[in-house]
Nucleic acid binder design. Structure first.
Ligand code: MN
Ligand code: MN
Ligand code: ZN
Ligand code: ZN
Lengths: 149, 149
DNA sequence: CTCGTTATTGCATGTTGTGGCGATAGCATC
DNA sequence: GATGCTATCGCCACAACATGCAATAACGAG
């Protein structure tokens, strides 16, 4: 999980510790991210960077997202269609539920996913990356709507 | 789940029942699918179709996969990178486990995922589409390797 | 077998990324 | 402040799909 201490204000130092560099392009993305919370797709981040710097190159943004993820400042998952979704400074690690019928999404926290995470850990020694998980299915409301027909 | 009765031999009839058509392009894909079992990505299917008919157009293959999925003859999920993976006539519905460290994958059947599926059903009335699920994390062997360092 | 309807195709183009490569520019050192 | 190492950038090409549109061709009806 991302702790408040490793805030956006220290990104520069965090990069330098690893011999990495603080560039204008990275500043732009960090700027965007620091004003974002919750979820954003990669392409949305590219757009938002372009609002600040129209010269923004997509590959630079995606590559920077990779290094920020290695630093633990963002985490990514995939929507129901497989597209990248970034978690920015999430208060608590979580995965996602997605209804393929109405398109609704809900967060599922460790406590709720505990049974799955716990049983895979126990039976296989497998450590689940909850923030990468998106579970697709049909929500209660949509199931009722179908049943009533 | 896909039952043996709705075999590839009856695809043509299944299509006609719905007012859909049996075309050479669809025949090619069904041909490929009938000789495939387990998992294939979309692009692999395009390649395999091209081996039979070099004129194969990707969009036609992807669109045909959509209709075959509506007929219940294939099911798709997404790999760790979000790319499509198709389940062809799976003996038993299952999701996937993927180790981000060694790249290994394992199938997880309903029994094993029961705790998760059951608890989401109980607490939210949410019906999980297990075959669309890919859980990413770290496998036991890779965790040991890291611990030993 | 011939028609007419309309599902499907192929094409062009767009979206979301990924990766190689040579040029540029951080930044630690002097 | 100038210098040199090398991380990073911009550019281009490519992968994996998705989608609108006009031309084509299944196929049921006569
Ligand atoms: Mn999907
Ligand atoms: Mn991923
Ligand atoms: Zn719903
Ligand atoms: Zn592993």
């Amino acid at each position: 999980m991302i702790d408040a201490a490793s805030d956006w204000t220290q990104v520069r130092e965090r990069l330098h510790e690893r011999g990495l560099r603080w560039t204008p392009q990275r500043r732009t993305l960090v700027d965007v991210l620091s004003r974002t919370d919750g979820h954003v797709t990669g392409s949305e981040l590219v757009e938002r960077c372009r609002e600040i710097d129209p010269e923004t190159t997509p590959s630079t943004v995606y590559r920077t997202l990779d290094v920020l993820e290695e630093l633990g400042l963002v985490r990514h998952g995939h929507g129901a269609d497989g597209r990248e979704e970034f978690h920015v400074l999430p208060a608590v690690e979580h995965g996602h539920l997605h209804c393929q019928s109405c398109g609704g999404t809900w967060e599922v926290e460790a406590a709720e996913a505990g049974s799955l995470v716990g049983s895979l850990e126990a039976s296989r020694g497998f450590a689940v990356d909850l923030s990468h998980v998106t579970i697709v299915g049909t929500c209660a409301a949509c199931r009722r709507a179908v049943a009533e027909t």
